[in-house]
């Protein structure tokens, strides 16, 4: 058996081993890439499987029922869903104009080097841990809201019919407004980082055409550049919304943690992420724990939809900008 030439098979097996090396590299990286998909699916499954008790007991109305009584075992998430949505929307109302203004300044006015440096500083705001925003929130923002901000709002917009109701009632300092303010600061960097890139991708000819027709620089920005970048900016806004919805620590520390619905922005409230953070280790019954996990599931689905919308919109504009 060993009488034949030894070198030939050895060379073949050497080449085969090399080919197997390729196979091994492929399979190894494929396995880890598959792992990412697996973990994501597993996460969704764990949330689903571990919220079976409240899903069976309360069904879908869990999401829009207002009840939270761990002693009686009666649970509904409306108070938290409401708080999450109110604070996030409020954050966007404040952060969107601010973020767009910053990105306009960085893309249209500032010289490239200044723009780079300032964009870096704005990006650093996104790197500040949320617990530090919470710390600043408790000891700086809450007293500020209690004293000059809330009374000033009540004395001005609070007197208007209709909209005035948003600022009625006693002032605690903690509440939806404070949470919305801190969230606004936290999401501005996300809006800026997307909007700045989208604005910079707007073809130069668009601006030149507007200026050549006699527009001022602001008119060219407002009537031509911003509309051109609209879809992409909206994508950035949705990205920011996704962040705001899931933000936990800063909100937990300033929202007041009271599971009630209130029409006033100055009233203390609660959010989905905050109730999970506060009650998870204190839940004594399986039903209570699983109700919290179901809130996590609702939060997961909500952010999934919002982020998907953001991705689609950003893709739409970037592909349009490159095709031009």
């Amino acid at each position: 058996m060993q009488s034949g030439p030894v070198t030939a098979p050895a060379r073949v097996s050497f080449i085969r081993r090399l080919r197997q090396g390729d196979q091994i590299a492929y399979l190894l990286t494929f396995a880890f890439a598959g792992l990412v998909v697996l973990v994501t699916a597993w996460l969704a499954w764990e949330l689903f499987a571990n919220s079976a008790l409240p899903r069976d007991k309360f069904g879908l109305p869990f999401v829009w029922t207002q009840a939270w009584d761990p002693v009686q075992g009666d649970f509904g998430a409306l108070g938290f869903v409401y708080g999450t949505i109110v604070t996030s929307v409020l954050a966007l109302v404040l952060a969107v104009p601010l973020g767009i203004a910053v990105s306009v300044f960085l893309s249209e006015l500032a010289p490239p080097k200044v723009s780079e440096a300032m964009a870096l500083l704005v990006d650093l705001l996104a790197a500040v841990p949320s617990v530090i925003y919470g710390l600043i929130g408790i000891y700086v923002l809450v007293p500020l809201v209690r004293d000059p901000i809330a009374p000033a709002l009540q004395a001005t917009v609070g007197r208007l019919p209709g909209i005035g109701r948003l600022f009625s009632g006693p002032v605690y300092g903690v509440g939806y407004l404070t949470a919305g303010l801190i969230l606004a600061i936290m999401v501005v960097p996300f809006i800026v980082s997307v909007s700045r890139e989208v604005l910079m991708a707007v073809p130069r000819e668009q601006r030149e055409a507007a200026l050549a027709l006699g527009s001022t620089q602001w008119e060219s920005t407002w009537n031509v550049v911003l509309p051109y970048a609209r879809v992409g900016i909206t994508g950035g806004v949705f990205l920011a919304l996704g962040r705001a919805l899931g933000e936990t620590m800063a909100v937990t520390m300033v929202i007041g943690n009271r599971p009630e619905l209130s029409g006033s922005l100055l009233a203390p409230g609660y959010s989905m992420a905050a109730v999970i953070a506060n009650e998870f280790t204190e839940a004594t019954t399986d039903l209570h724990l699983q109700a919290l996990i179901e809130i996590g599931l609702v939060l997961f689905l909500l952010t999934m939809v919002v982020n998907a919308l953001a991705q689609v919109m950003i893709l739409l504009t970037t592909s349009r900008a490159t095709s031009h």
Partner: peptide, 11 residues
Amino acid sequence: TDLLNGVPSIV
């Protein structure tokens, strides 16, 4: 990956 990136850290 994008989906996982959007999941709130508390989840």
